[in-house]
Design a protein around this nucleic acid. Sequence first.
RNA 1: GCCCCCGUAGCUCAGUGGAUAGAGCGCAGGCCUCCGGAGCCUGAAGCAGGCGUUCGAGUCGCCUCGGGGGUACCA
Length: 504
Amino acid sequence: MTRPPLALDLVADALGAGLRRAALDLGWGDAAAVPVDVERPKDPGHGDYATSVALRLARPLRRPPREIADAIRARVETDGAVAEIEVAGAGFVNVRLRPSWLAAQVDEIVEAGTEYGRSDALAGRRLQVEYVSANPTGPLTIANARGGPLGDVLANVLAFAGADVTREYYVDELGNQVDMLGRSVALRYRELAGEPVTIAEDAYPGEYIVEIARRIRDADGGRYDGAPLEEQARAFTPDAVAWILEDQKRTVAKLGITFDEWFRDRSLLDSGYFADTVGELRGRGVIEDRDGAVWLRSRELGEDIDSVVIRSNGEPTYFGMDIAYHRKCLIDRGFDMKIDIWGANTHGHMRRMRTAMTALGLGEGRWEVVLYQYVRLVREGVLMKMGKRLGQVVWLEDVLDAVGPDAARFFLLQRGADSTLDFDLELAVSQSNENPVYYVQYAHARIASIFRTAAGRGLDAGGADVALLVAPGELELVRACLRFPELVREVQAHRSVHLLTGYA
RNA sequence: GCCCCCGUAGCUCAGUGGAUAGAGCGCAGGCCUCCGGAGCCUGAAGCAGGCGUUCGAGUCGCCUCGGGGGUACCA
């Protein structure tokens, strides 16, 4: 299917051609090589699109910007989409689209349907978006929910540009946190046997731990009674992790998210890939053995301190595993690029990872992180402090049951990843104009109603005479539609998925 | 101490170095027997502060102030 070019590109092409002709006629030489960046002026009085290229060229050409702008304007062909060109202000070249061309776009948009905005800009590219990736130590919380819609929608948008996208969840089932999960379950297992236990301060406190312990107990009939805690913990961990993963899968599904791959970090260890990666780093001369541990010589690579890759007890660190995991994705699994959606608390880890990736020659262009700031919950107008330590945990599933997946996704996508997001529970369920979700849903309902009414009168989009669309309001609506593919491109370029909710 | 994010209208937030900084809500005033009054129009109101870079700064750099988060042989 051939897709009609974007208005933005038509304008850029027309202006670029004008610039090249001017450069040729007037002997500007290299000036023709500069890209003509086109933007939508803030003030609609300045036309549909504008370029400031003349202002930029003023210095190298040593001519007044308006003279340059005039020279370009005189050489731009005004046909098709471009109706008129004017030079304004300090030397802006403003472009107005032809109303009849605008009206004709309605046919293109109707023809494209839900494919409108799709492109093949990223065709042939294999991308992985990794998101959520919460530890399998408990159900998902509102805190680790934000990466869900961010990653899922980014994946959607990249796929919309033709990329082959894999949605991935990294399951970190090794290390101290999961060990603690096993011990926490073991303690509850003992408690259910009627043993007097004191729940360790750093144990996981949630009710789900008790439930897991009960299930295990029901299944094994108390076979591990009397065994040492560490043995119980080891025995219970796989079941506990499996139970939690199922819970997490169910919860993300409620959020409308399915992953292509749940990658278990254990596989990196079992296959020897982790050891292989450390060998690779060693071969590149960035590894040092010290105090019985294996270190990445981060300091020589620009960091403040070195970082441990293998602890002195022989176990890999999370950092070390993540290096191996990223190498696995980019070298062995064949992804052209890996995009990680990570929470703000990982920024230290991200820095160390960047150093490690650079050492492996997997830096710029191969790996990228979208770091998102925290989610805070607002309940009855009051900000809640959250944290497992505080015992103030808000489970994502409870929020989803309360507000529904659409509102949850929309709310989590309303802010740029860089901004802290305050999630107002009452607002999300309120049926008022103050609730953006409700407002958008209402607009959708009204539009659907228009189509129902039209159908009732025997009308559909086929055979419409778009030449009748001449009123300013009608053309404004077409312009708003033309904005969509531009927005999609912008989101693809800057990973700024929150712009979509604003547009809606 | 060092590092990261943020500070824009009364509120919640947009704003790829460009022209007179936008949206929604709220507020004030007006309108509306045709698609859902959960509507439409108009209006008041703002870049935390300072110094730089630039033809041009909300945007880039430095400093100050304020808020949030990091800174383990945790993950």
